[in-house]
Amino acid sequence: MIDLLIKNGRIFDPGQGLDFTGDVAVHKGKILALGENLPYAGERTICAKGFFVVPGLIDVHTHVNWKGNYIGMPADLGCIPNGVTATIDAGSSGVSNYQALLQYLNTCEVKSKIMLHISAGGQIMSKQFPENINPRVWNIDLFERAFEQYGHKIAGIKLRISQNVVGPMKLYPLKEALKLAEHFHTKVFVHPTNPPVPMETAASLLRGQDVMCHMYHGEGHTILENGKISSGIWEARKRGVIFDVSPGKGNFSIRLAQEAIRQGFLPDTISTDLNIENWNDPWDFSLLMTMSKLMALGMTFQDVILSTTVNAARLYGDEEMGTLKPGTGADITILDLASQSIAFEDKYKNKILGKQALRPMATIINGKLLYCSSDTLAER
């Protein structure tokens, strides 16, 4: 008798090149086996007929500092009912308060890491109170302590280079943050909406595996120059710079994204920028709805699954995630690719009509069934 048996689902794992109808056996928190008509009985059996069974989805850009700052979203509530098994908090805290966030996240079922904000207090109230990112006030000793004790939980360093944040310093904080990241052998996550310089100028400073967030933002300088993806942006991708969607409510342009995708500039990772202000909001409903929106804009089902599993796991820094390989941790998402007319809109009133929507059917983390739709009970 095994713990959990998922029956007759369409097993789709782009990392392993798998796409077939069969079963998944889960026992003691691990994936035991994949195959057709597996000879196991499960203490719990899920009928996944007609649904996709994919590696657990990873949302690499959220704000889940619940009760810790203005926009903090409850991590489990925002993730688990939407098929998300792991997330990275996007700089909600800095060296003065990150331990409280880590303590809270340790109480959650969803797996998590954090971006450590370059500002000591993190992003508290981004619109009303831009963070102080002046390198002159950085406490390097506190960074040393954070990475020494909690480096395994820190995905990288976060900073915003929007004009209202950097002011006359322009790219000076970014240059200094890159030096700091080099010292700690970690990534830099950059929020570039309305940057003080062309996007390709900012991207030219980034190293391979650094992350450009909000890649399809439409404020000020963007990744498009004269209607085309700028050569410097293509060069950054060739160097290994990671481009992430993280749309939020205000960092996404449907028209720009559609044109960029048409030109072949797809995201490496898809995330939400989920926070308490945009949870269940039409602009940024959930990770699955963001994936559905990008499918409406020209990405394929395989594209969006690859971006939220294999690529996201690589960014997260855990080789056992983003796969259904036997022996790895049983983080699994079951979803429905439903035929559904759905209108997506951005803050500029641009609209795109999608014909398909991804819907969550079940979420499994470390072999534990934490969410299950009643649709899995229906006879099909």
Rank of each mutant, 00 (worst) to 15 (best):
E43P: 00
Y150D: 14
S162C: 09
V24E: 00
Q263K: 05
L369M: 12
P282E: 11
V304T: 00
K349F: 12
I233L: 10
Q356Y: 08
A260M: 02
Y70S: 13
R262P: 05
A343E: 15
P247W: 04
S162W: 02
G232N: 07
P168C: 09
V165S: 02
P130H: 09
R255F: 03
W138G: 01
A146D: 06
D76N: 13
V64Q: 05
I140T: 14
W66P: 03
Y348L: 15
L294P: 00
I305E: 03
L174V: 04
F243V: 04
K170T: 08
L206R: 01
Y40G: 11
M299G: 00
K351N: 07
A155C: 14
N134L: 08
E182T: 06
H217V: 07
A86E: 11
D281N: 15
L4A: 07
L297R: 00
L101W: 02
P196C: 11
W66Y: 15
L358A: 06
G218T: 07
Q340Y: 00
E319K: 11
A33P: 01
I46R: 02
P267S: 11
D141R: 11
W234S: 04
M321W: 02
H217S: 09
Q103E: 14
V165I: 15
Q209N: 13
I161V: 13
N275E: 09
M295L: 08
H27I: 11
R145V: 13
Y216S: 05
L288H: 01
L224F: 07
L377P: 00
G317C: 11
C79A: 15
E176S: 11
A202M: 10
K325T: 14
Y98P: 01
D375V: 10
W138S: 01
E200T: 11
L38A: 08
L102A: 09
T62F: 10
A41I: 07
E148L: 13
D13A: 06
G72E: 10
L370R: 02
E36N: 11
A357E: 12
E345K: 04
A338L: 07
F252M: 04
A362I: 05
Q16K: 15
L266S: 05
V84C: 09
L335N: 00
I31F: 13
A90S: 14
E131L: 08
Q258A: 07
G22D: 09
R136Y: 13
S112H: 08
G78W: 08
G29D: 06
A155K: 02
D141A: 12
